[in-house]
Amino acid sequence: MTATLEVTELRKQFAVGRPAIDGVSFSVPAGEIVVLLGPSGCGKTTTLRCVAGLEHPTGGEISISGRVVSSPARGVQVAPRSRDLGMVFQSYAVWPHMTVRQNVIYPLKHRKISRTEANRMVEEALTLVGLSEYGDRPVVALSGGQMQRVALARSMVYRPQLLLLDEPLSNLDAKLRLRLRDDLRVILKQTGMTALYVTHDQAEAVVLGDRSRQ
């Protein structure tokens, strides 16, 4: 269920200027949390988006549990939805026209899962992030921290083999950030998922990471 991530010699060149990523290699062993740490604009988010399949790398290779998902040299570029991964966005990206439950059940609707099973998985995910009582609330009625928990539940509900987190705490206020940071570590460790975490906050990196790359 949980998998290793292997990134080798990754390169991404946008239309103009010098490459955003130039020959990055790292690996995330199964079940570990690796943090990419660095100042803004150094290519962390682009790396993460390449792993997600939202950006197409211009060189190098990405493989998830042994399966090559991106390799421009070999013409391989697997669509994001076929990579079986979860992602938490900096802007939460929870859908404002849905309730909490509708948000979380959305990924399960695109998989072959029975309704009762799906409902059970949603309850489990909501309990995990501490929102089991908020299921029927519209997401726009939630606070920032709660929205980020919805996003987390949504990204984990289908037990993806890899979880990607793109500065998930940076839009929260300082106090909330500390609390959610500790919760996040507990939740991730509880599920035993492999995770790649991007941040520019050193403290976050130290608390969350099993290893960290700068």
Binding site: A52, L54, A79, P80, R81, L85, G86, M87, F89, Q90, S91, A93, V94, W95, Y106, P107, H110, R111, A151, R154, S155, Y158
Partner: peptide, 23 residues
């Protein structure tokens, strides 16, 4: 519109077409 709203749908497994009509 924040494009990550659509990206989140795609990562959740929705096709481009289904993203258009559900998100």
């Amino acid at each position: 519109m924040d494009p990550s709203l659509e990206e989140a749908a795609e990562i959740s497994g929705a096709s481009a077409f289904s993203t258009l009509f559900t998100v």
